[in-house]
Nucleic acid binder design. Structure first.
Length: 368
DNA sequence: GAGTCGTGGCC
DNA sequence: TGGCCAAGACT
């Protein structure tokens, strides 16, 4: 069905109009100042599900610390996660790190130019591969990110959720891509979605494609793309322990590589069971996870945090070590550290709020 | 193929 | 201010 819609599009006219608009109104972004495939690769990974404004400072710090693929490959994972700290979706950093090691091992540190080889790297899917190859090497590889999906759904007035018509959208992105200027075209495509064809209140009056946009023609631009209904997110109550020993050190643990916040450090704790007090929960969880007995003391802070598919309330208490040698039972590693040393470890956002509270209160270790 | 995976900006 | 969404990939 979209094939007929595609055939009606004046593709040459659209390409020219977009290119003209881009040369006047395109964004000047840091990763467009270079054709280094590594720098472009880093930007593409950081930009997954993340806004440009958020990425820019991380991108600059990253390249300052890891200027080459070889330097990234040689770095300890903890250093990599520390630079990524706060950016979220930490599998991106772990995969980027692994992929750099793969590039060093397989291609002597030179980023590949073949699509299949690029796709074989962890963390790089079809859109990211297309984005890198078009930006770095000017290859005519199509993309289908959130911006492009939204533009195409509106341009073609597709009245189905984008997830249902991915194959059609890829076909459209491929058909539109300008084979003479693939680098400019893909960048212009995304800029159009990011600056004019926005999710809310699109600026159709400034759009180079307005006269051919089926959504605009039928005044559907604010109702498309159709959204799928989302399930309500669960809310978990978590008891968290800041465990002090008699040397004024705090016990932290490293989360397993797989799963949420993998490879990051945290203050140990766990889910409060029905009818269970927070204090009982903390004692039980610490016994289960670390194999030690603790005493639960004053409340430090309560932190609310929203993840993508659930919410948590962290109820944090000062605690003191009573007996037993801590063991890494349900985590990768455990360590006693001072308050000052916490800065050396990558922590997720919710735990950073706990650290800030610790420093603000400057509460000494309660003596057991 | 539906769930999983973070955080900040925006209104 | 709570919900939506962002240059998606992986299982």
């Amino acid at each position: 069905m979209p094939e007929t819609k595609l055939k009606k599009l004046p593709i040459a006219k659209l390409r020219t109009a977009l290119r003209t608009w881009y040369q006047e109104s395109g964004r000047d972004l840091p990763w467009r100042q270079t054709q280094d495939p590594y720098a472009i690769w880093v930007s593409e990974i950081m930009l997954q599900q993340t806004q440009v404004k958020t990425v820019i400072p991380y991108y600059q710090r990253w390249l300052a610390q890891f200027p080459t693929i070889a330097s990234l490959a040689a770095a300890p994972q903890q250093d990599v996660l520390k630079v990524w700290q706060g950016l979220g979706y930490y599998a991106r950093a772990r995969n980027l790190h692994r992929a750099a090691q793969q590039v060093v091992a397989d291609w002597d540190g030179t980023f590949p130019e073949q699509f299949d080889q690029v796709m074989s790297l962890p963390g790089i899917g079809r859109t990211t591969a297309g984005g890198i190859l078009s930006a770095a090497f000017n290859q005519p590889t199509p993309i289908l990110d959130g911006n492009v999906k939204r533009i195409l759904v509106r341009l073609l007035a597709i009245q189905q959720p984008p997830k249902k018509v991915l194959a059609d959208l890829w076909e459209a992105s491929t058909a539109l891509l300008d084979p003479e200027y693939p680098r400019e075209f893909n960048q212009a495509f995304m800029d159009l979605g990011a600056t004019l064809c926005t999710p809310k209140q699109p600026q159709c009056d400034r759009c180079p494609w307005r006269s051919d946009c089926q959504a605009y023609r039928h005044q559907l631009q604010t109702t498309l793309p159709m959204t799928e209904q989302k399930a309500p997110v669960p809310h978990k109550q978590i008891g968290v322990a800041v465990i002090w020993n008699d040397q004024n050190q705090i016990l932290i643990d490293k989360r397993p590589q797989k799963g949420l916040l993998g490879g990051l450090w945290e203050f140990p704790g766990g889910k409060v069971e029905p009818q269970e007090s927070v204090e009982d929960c903390i004692r039980r969880e610490i016994k289960e996870e670390l194999g030690i007995e603790i005493g639960v003391d004053d409340h430090l802070i309560t932190v609310n945090h929203a993840y993508t598919h659930f919410k948590v309330t962290l109820m944090v208490h000062h605690c003191h070590h009573i007996q037993g040698e801590p063991q890494a039972i349900e985590c990768d590693e455990i360590r006693w550290v001072t308050l000052a040393e916490l800065d050396e470890y990558p922590f997720p956002k919710a735990n950073q709020e706990i650290i800030a509270a610790l420093r603000a209160s400057k509460q000494p270790a309660p003596k057991g």
